[in-house]
Nucleic acid binder design. Structure first.
Lengths: 213, 213
DNA sequence: CCTAATCAATGACGGCGTTATGTAACGGTG
DNA sequence: CACCGTTACATAACGCCGTCATTGATTAGG
């Protein structure tokens, strides 16, 4: 009654290979045949370990979200919470740049022939905001931000970050309005919009930018 | 020495059909064969009128940009320039919602099997910001915004709008932080970040939201 | 050792973008 | 008028894709 067990490595290998193909050759190169070739198996592996190409992509996306989450969680909390917010922004952006194709797939771009995320996937990605929400709460507690809904403020920051990242990856931010320039201005404006003092805001934005990514 | 003339209608029909397919059935349904079937021709028409599928998509994207531009240009200039900025934001968002698949293709998402925009395409899309830049200049002239680079401020607004739109289209903005809620908060924060007075900002945001889209 | 059960390899199917080849329409030329 | 070079489009093929039914291989329990 106990037949040959499924090789748990194969699923992980497929996800890894898919992420690598996605990163190095773009979404168009992601095919069951290429995957089977690089992993050294047949196309059927995709169907036994996942339901099909869509579900494999979904798994890769989940990997991408945990990657992003780990990156954000690695940002340290200092006694300048506004600088922490800025550092989180840099981390978010750095992660997107390092896994640009993956980021595109994660957030609905790169449709990958009809593939789209489910509500569960999106919900899974939502906890990404946790670190940001915590930082915003600390900004409010430190009376740097006016009292308001920290989740809403985090959403605003997220929206701004996401817009910047996608336009940057799309190649829309060129001299003299590069992504770096716009990032600084954007974060500054958002922090000011949240109620921080202009002078302290500038200082914190500069401090946050100096953090290691 | 004078060969058979190309039917100029066919190219337009192809673009129109492509836009319709894109809108109604998504990027996955956009194929030379479906196009040929709906227009009533063969797949070769795509290659004689455009260089291939990529160039047809490019043409559709250009159509999309002129559509967006027309939408933004139709926003009237009133004596409340901040409200005009807000109205431009609503118009931008309304256009994206009405042509969601097209918007995704325009801005790098929906890779459509390896397709990506050229620098020329992006440059063609850049004049989209003109209306926004003009409105920001008027805000500065009316001393609602602090003196600064209007283009940079317009970029910031654009980035925030784009982030909101793409996250909205991706289904990431759900209760209680819906796209409407975030939009208001986002625009408010950006306007405040640009230097406007809080009370007048709120008033203008409300006024701009009441404009017909 | 046999049997049941499960994974994976093979090959097929339809659909895709693209390309080679055929064909018919057109304007210039006699 | 006929003729011909040129070009637009049709047809069919090629290689690739995702998917799946079939079949062989492999393993654990009896």
């Amino acid at each position: 009654m106990s037949p040959r067990k499924v090789d748990p490595n194969l699923g992980a290998q497929l996800i890894e290979a898919a992420a690598r193909l996605l990163s190095e050759e773009g979404p168009a190169a992601l095919s069951t045949r290429k995957l089977a070739a690089t992993v050294g198996t047949s196309t059927m592996a995709v169907y036994t370990h996942f339901g099909g190409m869509d579900d494999l992509v979904r798994a890769v996306v989940r990997e991408g979200f945990t990657l992003l989450n780990r990156r954000l969680e690695s940002v340290e909390e200092t006694d300048d919470p506004v600088a922490d917010v800025v550092a989180l922004g840099w981390a978010y952006r750095a992660n997107a740049r390092e896994h640009r194709h993956l980021y595109n797939v994660m957030f609905g771009g790169s449709s990958l022939s009809g593939f789209s995320l489910t509500d569960a996937d999106r919900q899974h990605g939502r906890y990404t905001l946790d670190a940001l929400v915590r930082a915003v709460k600390r900004c409010v507690a430190a009376e740097r931000f006016l009292p308001s809904d920290p989740e809403l403020v985090a959403h605003q920051l997220w929206i701004a970050l996401h817009g910047l990242v996608t336009l940057d990856l799309g190649g829309y931010l060129v001299e003299p309005f590069t992504a770096d320039t716009c990032f600084e201005a954007q974060v500054c404006a958002m922090v000011l919009g949240a109620g921080d003092d202009p002078a302290r805001a500038r200082e914190s934005v500069a401090r946050g930018a100096l953090r290691p990514v």
